[in-house]
Amino acid sequence: MLAYILRRLGQSVLVMAAVSLISFSLFNFVGDPVNNMVGQEATREDRVRIRQELGLDDPIFIQYFRFVSNAVKGEFGLSYRVRRPVDVLIKERLPATLELVAVSAVIALVVGICAGVYTGIRRDGWLSKTILSTSLVGVSLPTFIIGIGLIYLFAVTLRWLPSSGRAGVVELGWWKTSFLTVDGWRSIILPALTLSLFQLTMVLRLVRSEMLEVMQTDYIKFARARGLSERSINFVHALKNTLVPVITIIGINIGGLIAFSVITETVFQWPGTGLMFIQAVDFADVPIMAAYLCFVALVFVVVNLIVDLLYVTIDPRIRIAGR
């Protein structure tokens, strides 16, 4: 067991190193940040001086080595765009993203599972058909179109909810939360819904197909034969057995939610890490991009690690093979 965990940890470190190296070599293609950092009057000498000061003329592996050795010490440098330390910026922006991801994950799970069970049981009902066909919207329309559509419906036409931003924030130490005020909840609904739609659709379809499969199995037939109530068959015996793959998928997709939040946050001006990343790309703000990509890689690696470890506890076969 210990050997298995150690091996997985070693692999995670390798993945992190690879991701950071690849992302770093990509920064050569985003352009020259210096041009954004100075006005058009700046002289050529001045631009050269700044490039040297930032070490942008060094070969890519030297820049990478410098980045890694600073990152190990927890230093990510200063954002070229807003001129503040990158670690402070990420720490400031992270609560917004995590809260958004949490709410949308809850929406995806609750609505997805309920609708999945329903459509799995009432396969041919008109409501099931409606749910299934509208759920296609969630996978087929791009996030920004869904977001803009929701804004025009709920903010511009009906005026029920704010169109953008994160209002009603309360500070709890360094963590700024929008869960404690009505305004906060009003502003998180639309972006969370937008972000959740894709996952929701996936959960719904997964639960539905698992339900369909489980309902055909022998033990459900036996349960019926024993005269158990429909309710207890559906929700206790059947649903329980469909959840294993669902939880795995959601676990992996938490990372996906954080990555997808880039677009949602931009549409709703949600002040999280995704919006910060987009603005950094536009500006060629290398320190922010480097730190953010490493952070996302870290999230993926950690989530995968946890999922793998959970497998070991759930499925003894892996434990044995791992020896």
Binding site: I148, I151, A155, S163, S164, V267, Q269, L275, I278
Partner: peptide, 9 residues
């Protein structure tokens, strides 16, 4: 507001 359509909204 970075997104133009959101700004107009």
């Amino acid at each position: 507001i970075a997104n133009a359509a959101t700004r107009v909204a």
